[in-house]
Design a protein around this nucleic acid. Structure first.
Length: 269
DNA sequence: AAAGGTTGCAACCGCTGGTCT
DNA sequence: CAGACCAGCGGTTGCAACCTT
């Protein structure tokens, strides 16, 4: 059967929570075949899901080696320290917490750690008030219909206000630099509660040093910064404590390469 | 006990960058 | 070289469980 435009109608894909049967199907399939191409996984595994959904389910829930349950105090400190240096780079933070996924860390940050972090910095309260006031006055000075404005508008308006006239490249995922230290990239809501009155965001934005770097270059630089003691001592502590988790990285790379399935079937439980 | 509010987490969506053709 | 395709990432949403009134 074809649609008006002559396309074959897509098979209806399931959304929402995964059933135990679906989990089992996906797990069985990946254990025996690996996942060369995620888009074909649901078809071959007989699942009415898209590849993206399968990938996410596998990475965040089904793959072996995942730690479940509460974060330890040490984990918390690691996240806080890494977040203060790397910003919202959840996947990179997750590299230093074996068995934890970026999604899990992100959720934990938003539901608990962020509050703790904010609480630990008493000057935030007045700063937040001041910034909220200036945002609202910025908005009220134009012919803007506040009733129809959404927070998104506020955010983009603020982003414009942040940017210097010689516009730097658009959004970049790299972290900005300030006095040789990485700055976390903040979203408006976070920026409004940010704790660093000394940070000159405009100069950080114009510093395009990192804008066009590849991830490898950034990783390399990260290592160099650690070697040169450019990171804060607390981050260094974390790095030393986890010893870069090299074996875990190797495991992760090995694992994602697919070789794991060829040589280590016996490792599965 | 019930209704409304809050929280935590799984999953989705949209975007980006890399690779392939 | 351009466009298609794909994996990965990070922000957001939806919903169930829990809490408060």
């Amino acid at each position: 059967m074809m649609t008006k435009s002559g396309e074959r109608p897509k098979q209806r894909q399931r959304k929402g929570l995964w059933s135990p049967e679906e989990d089992q199907k996906l797990k069985n399939f990946i254990i025996s075949h690996g996942h060369a191409c995620w888009t074909t996984v649901p078809i071959l595994a007989g699942l009415q899901r898209n590849g993206k959904s399968c990938r996410l389910r596998w990475i965040n829930y089904l793959r072996p080696g995942l730690k479940r349950g509460t974060f330890s105090a040490e984990d918390e400190e690691t996240i806080l320290t890494l977040h203060s240096s790397l910003g919202n780079k959840w996947s990179r933070i997750a590299k230093y917490l074996p068995g934890r996924t970026d999604n899990e860390i992100k959720n934990y940050w938003h539901s608990y750690l962020k509050k703790r972090w904010l609480k630990s910095q008493p000057q935030l309260k007045t700063q937040r008030t001041n910034l909220a006031e200036s945002a609202s006055s910025l908005l009220s000075c134009g012919k803007r219909n506040l009733e129809t404005e959404t927070l998104d508008h506020v955010i983009s308006f603020e982003k414009l206000a942040e940017k210097p006239s010689s516009s730097p490249p658009e959004e970049s995922n790299t972290n900005m630099m300030n006095n040789g230290k990485y700055l976390p990239k903040l979203f408006f809501s976070e920026w409004i509660s940010s704790s660093n009155p000394h940070i000159d965001y405009s100069s950080a934005l114009t510093d395009s040093k990192h804008i066009n770097q590849t991830q490898d270059q950034i990783d390399e630089e990260e290592v160099m910064m650690i070697n040169n003691n450019s990171y804060s001592s607390s981050l260094e502590d974390v790095m030393l404590r986890t010893e870069f988790l090299q074996p875990d990285h190797e495991y992760a790379n090995y694992y994602s390469s697919g070789d794991f399935f060829i040589n280590n079937d016996q490792n599965y439980v």
